Simulated scan of single mutants.
Amino acid sequence: MPHTNSAPQLFIGLISGTSADGIDAALVRFTGDGDTTQCELVHGHTYPWPEDLRVRLISLGQGAPVDSLDEMGTLDVRIGEHFATAALQLASDAGVAARDVHAIGSHGQTVRHRPAGAAFDGHHPFTMQLGDAHVIAERSGITTVADFRRRDVAAGGLGAPLLPALHNALLHSPQEDRAVLNLGGIANFTLLPAHGDVRGFDTGPANALMDAWCARHTGQAFDAGGAFAAQGACDAALLQRLLDEAWFALPPPKSTGREVFHLDWVEARLHGNEAAADVQATLLELTAASVADALLAHQPGTRRVLVCGGGVHNARLLERIAARLPDAAVESTARHGVDPDFVEAMGFAWLARQALLGKPGNLPSVTGARGPRVLGVVHPAN
């Protein structure tokens, strides 16, 4: 039976996103029930992947083939072990005993995302995240909830985005139309009108393309502060070729990932004589343009854009988004008491709690599923 408990409870949320730059871990305290639930970040940290594993995860996310079922099984367990280690280290760093953590919500690492309408064949939509939750529960001794996306996909949804309900709980205002912009490997919006239904959808690439191009041409994993992009100039013709991608014209609900937006996709649109810094500047502008175009098309009255995810630290990117949205304030979620680096990890702690309470985790208006569904599979601690 679903349980209810208004006493404070600690949950850990774990996620490695499209950028695969590490495991984001958040220790979250929930207090209260229902509409009165409060969600507080107690401690957050990002634990880097071993470089060989990070490289392999990125290649799989971009569609590289799996060598064998043996490799897939080994990766599943190995990722699960790293997730368990991250959870235990986070609790230790926060001075919390593992036995005092009610549950872990683990997103895992997406290696394939082929939901309904995806351009592969569409007949058998699926999404696949690795990170064996049995291993996480066994190694950590903490009840683990995982596999959050597949039920939504089975119900005809896209399996993403899954965090708009949490964004609504934390950042909605009855005084103004707001949008929460997550700048991860992929960018996505949660639209929070002052009055009306919550909506959400992916807008296209964010850090995934910029990081990959930067790593190839500078050896740095990401473009700190947009400094590399600042050395170049946006190539307007290239930007238009990138924006001509048919995916941008699709109506919501929609989601995407490295299966569409990867370096081969960029290189197919280059003439071959572009300066590396100019391409970086153009990829940054691609994110700014696709984000702004999506918001103006779907919630033009937005007065505040609240930014989270790794891209919040790219000052040049935020400047370009703000320039394209002159009627909206563009600011970090930190200004509203929500750490921008751990919003997603907090979200999977929240989804774990929803599952244990027997409550839906998806919003059909966002994912396109046939109805609300309880998301996640529970793996007891023992």
Rank of each mutant, 00 (worst) to 15 (best):
L270S: 02
F348K: 11
A276H: 13
H313I: 04
R335C: 13
V305R: 00
N273Y: 07
D278L: 00
E274K: 06
R320E: 15
D278G: 08
A297C: 14
T282I: 00
D339M: 08
V291R: 03
A288G: 12
A275C: 07
E331D: 06
N314F: 02
I321E: 02
V260P: 05
P340R: 01
N273P: 04
A292H: 05
A268N: 11
A322T: 10
A315P: 06
V279Q: 00
D339F: 08
R324W: 11
A322R: 10
L263D: 09
D327S: 13
R335D: 15
D278C: 03
A281V: 09
P340M: 00
G310L: 04
F261L: 01
V291W: 03
A292E: 05
Q280Y: 04
V307S: 01
L325E: 07
V266I: 02
V307K: 03
A294C: 12
V330Q: 01
P340I: 00
L263C: 05
V307C: 01
R335A: 15
G347T: 14
R324Q: 15
L318M: 10
E267F: 03
F261V: 06
A275Y: 05
L325T: 13
D327K: 08
Q299G: 07
Q299W: 08
T287R: 04
S332H: 14
A349E: 13
L270G: 02
L306D: 01
L306S: 00
T287H: 05
V266M: 00
S332M: 14
S290W: 03
D278R: 10
L317C: 09
I321Q: 02
A275I: 08
C308Y: 06
L318Q: 08
H271I: 14
G311S: 03
R303T: 11
A315L: 09
L283Y: 03
G272E: 09
Q299T: 14
A322D: 10
V338H: 07
P326K: 11
F348E: 05
D264W: 04
V343N: 04
W350Q: 09
A294V: 07
V343D: 03
T302L: 01
V279C: 00
A334P: 12
A315Q: 14
A275F: 04
V307A: 01
D264S: 12
D293K: 06
V343P: 07
L283F: 02
G272D: 11
Q280E: 10
A289C: 12
R320I: 06
V330K: 02
V260F: 10
R335G: 15
A277M: 10
F261W: 11
A322H: 08
H262M: 06
V338T: 10
I321V: 15
A322E: 09
R324M: 08
Q280C: 06
A315V: 14
R269E: 02
E344S: 05
A294M: 11
Q299S: 05
Q299H: 12
P340A: 00
R269L: 00
S332I: 14
A294F: 09
S290F: 01
E344T: 05
L284R: 15
A294K: 06
G272K: 12
A345Q: 07
P326N: 07
P300A: 02
E319S: 15
G301F: 02
A268M: 06
T287P: 11
A277N: 09
A349S: 13
H313P: 06
E319Q: 15
A345H: 08
